[in-house]
Amino acid sequence: MSDPLLKVAGLSAGYGDMAVLRDIKLEIARGEIVALVGSNGAGKTTLLRALSRLIPSTGQINFTGRALDELTPDEVFALRLVQVPEGRQLFDQMSVEENLLMGGYRRPDSAAVAADLQRAYELFPRLKERRRQLAGSLSGGEQQMCAIARGLMAAPELLMVDEMSLGLAPVIVDLLLDTLVAIRKEGVTVLLVEQDVFSAFYVADRGYVMESGSIVRVGPAKELAEDPEVKRAYLGI
């Protein structure tokens, strides 16, 4: 990992006076799928918020060689560091298609946006069927598809997906995981934040384990999945 796509060092962040993250170190290389796992309240979502600059932080965040500290969320987005947030956060009163088009909001090339829209519909034929439907009236699985497709419409360098599997049937989770593997083949790097440790380590190359605001384990996903401590803590084995 000579030239990582994302490099985080000594990052601390929190809400007001409450510190949540302490001294986080994390690196992601181009083309990787990296899983970030940890129990409820460990601080995974907080880390993504800091990376997207929704909350302030101290320490370094480098993305494609640029420091993000001083940037606003829309500027980070313009650098193609894109987040599919926890709870999907769709534009409920807009159609599926409009949600997807919002993903391409900052892209000047409308021909490329139109092409990516077709691509998104190929990935998720369900969304094509329902493209005129209001996003708020989709089923949970369809909403998650819509959220991921909206993220892809931004032509991300790094796509950060938070709690993708929450509340979804295993078939849908598998389908979404397959999609992530497919888009990685097209050059998109993925940071997958998951509670479902087994699924996450199954598709990921490397994994990070977070506990109460700190990274406690790093390593190849296969090794972490076999690690007796991780198994005991997260798989209940």
């Binding site: 969320p73 829309d74 956060q89 769709l90 534009f91 909001y105």
Partner: peptide, 17 residues
């Protein structure tokens, strides 16, 4: 569209540029 999106979900609008 961005104006409507912002009215509906400010956080998501900020995350999407």
């Amino acid at each position: 569209r961005a104006i409507r999106a912002t009215a509906q979900n400010l956080v998501a609008a900020r995350l999407y540029g």
